[in-house]
Amino acid sequence: METKLETVRTLQDLLAEGDELWIVCHNNPDPDCLASALALGHIAADVGIDEQHILYCGAISHQQNRAFVNLLEIDLRPFDPDDVVDRPEGSLLALVDHSVPGANNEIPAGTPVDVVIDHHEAEGIRARFVDHREAIGATSTILTEYLDALDVEFEPLLATALLFAIRRETLGFLRGATRAEYAAGGTLHEHADLNLLRQLANPSVSGATIDAIADAIDNRTVRGSVLVSYVGRTTERDALPQAADYLASLEGVETTVVFGIVEDTVQLSGRSTDARVHIGDVLRETFADVGSAGGHREMAGGEIPLGLFADQVDEDDQLVDIVERIILGRLVNALNLADDGDDGRDADAAG
């Protein structure tokens, strides 16, 4: 089996062939993706690539993600497909925390990729260098292993970024964490800026996020250990996973799905601690015919174009009602909720 040092040396040899490095983050990048991009850029700089570009698709709306970018002074630019397709000869394209062009990103399908480093479930990965480890809890763990194998001195900002990303991705080492995450955390801790780490962990929350979470609480439907809710329209996409995390703490609840309308899409966020439920598979199978969805056994998300519903009505209020009814109905069927005991709320009436 190839050692970590041999793996990162292989990566270095590939990077040394390039003059520029274009690192593309996935849609609406989270700290794990952003920290991994920073770390890969650090490795590239070490072999002489000074021209680097970190691109992001979607938006950075979660308050922790915005604080992450601002406090760590990450140089980002919005993704433009032309930048990738028409990039200079001799430049390299890398994906971190995602792996396939056109899946959770806006890269044209079939675009050749040089580097893929990821821990999410995926098929059909093609790149000159691939480190795809689904058993690992965070992509930042893999990058930390690379840097440690190279025996580099961790800069405080980079160490802080990686440590926060690992903690955030694993919910404080409680979700999907392996021995590798604990080892990486131990490596990073002595180099991290703990005051900055505390700032990142406690950012201010927008009023729109609080409103969305409140709506999710009010609109919840519970059947046995499953909770489904919706927030209507919101400007804060990342309020949905925050609402899902919060509602997952409700006593007796093991599986939670929250959905809402964000701009021109329906966004979904799911959580599950039920060993019988792979929430990524549930969302993927339920919405494969109308959008894209999937993820891990314990954490997943999805996106459906709103245009599929918009043609049916003229008024926005009607649109919201139709989205709620159809999405809730699909989830009720997928999670076998129709005949379960409930807490007084009628899922079928709500849908």
Rank of each mutant, 00 (worst) to 15 (best):
Y230K: 01
V47R: 03
L308Y: 05
N336C: 03
V313G: 01
T7D: 08
Q64Y: 03
N104P: 09
D314A: 14
G18D: 06
I166P: 00
L163I: 00
A127S: 13
A243F: 00
R168F: 10
E123P: 07
R198M: 09
L319Y: 03
A35G: 05
I166L: 06
D19H: 13
E20G: 02
V320R: 02
L150F: 03
A127N: 14
D311V: 05
A39S: 04
A135M: 12
V277Q: 03
Q242D: 14
I217Q: 07
F164T: 01
D346I: 02
V282A: 11
C57A: 12
S36T: 02
G185F: 05
T234K: 09
V152M: 00
L250Y: 13
P108R: 03
E251C: 14
D321Q: 10
I107S: 11
V205A: 12
C57N: 12
R168D: 08
D281S: 15
W22S: 08
A59K: 14
I23Q: 05
F154S: 01
S61I: 03
I60N: 02
L21I: 13
N105Q: 12
V282I: 14
N219F: 04
D32F: 05
L337M: 15
T3E: 12
E324F: 01
L331V: 00
T286Y: 02
S229Q: 02
P31Q: 06
H53R: 12
D118C: 11
P81V: 03
V313F: 03
E2H: 10
D342H: 11
A45H: 06
V277S: 00
N27S: 15
G302T: 08
C57V: 13
I261V: 14
T235N: 11
P156Q: 06
L268V: 04
T235F: 11
V262C: 05
V152P: 00
L268S: 00
E251H: 15
L163E: 02
N28E: 09
E155K: 05
Y246D: 07
Y182C: 10
M1H: 10
H296P: 09
V113T: 08
A350V: 11
L283S: 10
S61V: 11
L15F: 05
V320Q: 05
N202F: 13
R167S: 07
R77V: 12
S206I: 04
H53M: 10
A109N: 10
A338T: 05
V282D: 10
A161R: 02
E324Y: 02
H191K: 01
E121C: 12
D151Q: 08
V266L: 06
I279S: 08
M299E: 07
